[in-house]
Design a protein around this nucleic acid. Sequence first.
DNA 1: CCGTTGCATAACCAATAGGTTATCTATTGT
DNA 2: ACAATAGATAACCTATTGGTTATGCAACGG
Lengths: 142, 142
Amino acid sequence: MQRNRIDLVWSALADPTRRGMLERLAEGETNITTLAAPFAMSQPAVSKHLTVLERAGLIQRTRKGREHHIRVDPRPLAEAGTWIEHYARLWQEQFDAVDAYLKARSGKASNRKAPTRKTSNRKTSTRKRTSSSKRTRERKPR
Amino acid sequence: MQRNRIDLVWSALADPTRRGMLERLAEGETNITTLAAPFAMSQPAVSKHLTVLERAGLIQRTRKGREHHIRVDPRPLAEAGTWIEHYARLWQEQFDAVDAYLKARSGKASNRKAPTRKTSNRKTSTRKRTSSSKRTRERKPR
DNA sequence: CCGTTGCATAACCAATAGGTTATCTATTGT
DNA sequence: ACAATAGATAACCTATTGGTTATGCAACGG
């Protein structure tokens, strides 16, 4: 359910295989077979990862005969980096402010014990969904 | 199938609702109800998003009575930003090199070389799949 | 004491992600 | 001409994601 480019960029980066590919591409343009070699997965799986990277705009392909040459496009990453930098600064200010506040008002160390939630036995919930329910959902066995 | 922290950070950022929450949190700590107000979704959905952000280390909660106060933790973002910056620089160099190479050879004599890695097929995949197929999978109608 | 509020949790569902095997096409080397 | 190679694609599977409704439950405010 990706709405826009930056969603695609971040979900593309969220996979270690795809990050590995991008890291490898920092050394230079390659064809797909070479790029895929270090990864213990089937060729179609690699192809799917490359499709994800391409749809995020992070790579470009060039066909040379039967080989597809892949190179990285740094521009979407620059955008993502800009977003991070912008908010990292704001968040850091926020974080520092709270931290300073806490330090200023408390000379004491932590007495932060857990709130001790009583082991609620809600497992006995019979899901009793009163008869006035609109959507009577039936349990389906799986 | 998230392996490590940075995967969690990036998949957390890949959702516009969660980014919206983080942006809101740049203005300061709030409770969950206030934070959730702008988003047209149920309260449990908000709760799940917050769980995702928390597991990525991007937020911290503090219980104050029945309210949970949320504040942002900028440190994981700093890590993510470092990763991006590092590779953005390498990728930009790569991109510029290829660009220069293309310009040089289309225009005039090159004073700058591009790496042009030969397709060194290390480990040419021996996934030949001889025609004697093992698992004949049957189509199952859905 | 009792109703309301703030939030979490359980159970469910549809859609997506990431993997597989099998097969297809286009190109290449001989 | 033809076998091998590079890669995409189709069909399938399972686990995860992002949403829902119903319910549990502690804390608050009379």
